[in-house]
Amino acid sequence: MNHKAQFDLARKTIYWMIAGVIITAVVFSFAVVIAQYKNNLTKIPPELDAELIALRFVNLPECFAYLDSETNSLHPGVIDLAKFTNEQMLKCYRTDAQTGIKTLNFRMRLKGLNQEVATNYYFNQDDFTLFKEVLVKSSSESSDLVPDLLIIYVQEKI
């Protein structure tokens, strides 16, 4: 083999070593881009998820909605202050130990009364906030309903 042929062979070997690496990287990048595009197609806005979960807080007697024990009628949108506790929050929305920090967690505050409750894996990492206008029934003896603002701080996964 003469010098020119040897030079050509060496040059092409080096070229294809580099080109092989680059082509492989391009193909992998292409697969990653498509996978990311697919993830974006299936992504649900966390605000929507949180809004749907937060519906239960003011609508269900198992959460904080006021249930008249005499007439057994439920009042959605009316917070029973006697239920506004962390223990009731655990009955309303409780995440498990394995996935608790990877899912939505909430801290709720009644602005006027300055009372707070939080879910079991809430760690003060607020990502966004929801607001709900509510009425608050402070005691079973009184029939007064006090308007208030329910501020819901939402923590996405940590």
């Binding site: 697919k38 197609l41 649900i44 998820d49 749907l52 239960r56 007697p61």
Partner: peptide, 22 residues
């Protein structure tokens, strides 16, 4: 795959909404 994941997300949101319906 995309339709499958979307269906699972939809059913999850529907269940969260239904759970909140008195």
């Amino acid at each position: 795959l995309t339709a499958k994941i979307n269906s699972a997300e939809d059913i999850k949101m529907m269940i969260n909404t239904l759970a909140a319906v008195p």
